[in-house]
């Protein structure tokens, strides 16, 4: 089971999954993100600093989130990407598609 910590402040949400995100738990992350987006927050920051590994099922979850966020006017920002996670975004050429910040503070300021 994937642990996901969520903080809501002033209409903005910071979501922090903990652990590897692969096919065994990407649907759980998808559920957390969809529930967060249902409230149409101003922004959703997905803080990946505690995710040491992600496969393409996790990336697909985030692409879907980006598409929903864009449609409804929510700003989606990823932050805290570890090397292995950044690598899959680069291989998939999605590092240019997402807004990626170094950490939560930078994501809030971006």
């Amino acid at each position: 089971m994937l642990e996901v910590n969520t903080q809501n402040a002033g209409g903005s949400i910071v979501m922090t999954p903990v652990g590897d995100v692969d096919l065994s738990c990407s649907r759980e992350l998808q559920g957390h993100i969809k529930r967060a987006l249902e409230g149409k927050p101003k922004s959703l920051v997905v803080n990946l600093e505690k995710v040491p590994y992600m496969d393409s099922s996790g990336v697909a979850t985030l692409v879907e989130a980006m598409q929903i966020a864009r449609k409804q006017g929510t700003r989606l920002v990823l932050c805290g990407l570890q090397d292995k996670v950044r690598s899959i975004f680069e291989i998939a050429r999605l590092d240019r598609v997402f807004t990626i910040a170094s950490d939560v503070q930078a994501a809030a300021a971006s």
């Binding site: 393409s56 979850t61 598409q67 291989i91 998939a92 999605l94 598609v97």
Partner: peptide, 13 residues
């Protein structure tokens, strides 16, 4: 890859 959508990345990776 220019078609941004969820899934379908495994073979490329």
């Amino acid at each position: 890859l220019d078609d941004i959508r969820p899934g379908g990345l495994g073979v490329h990776i």
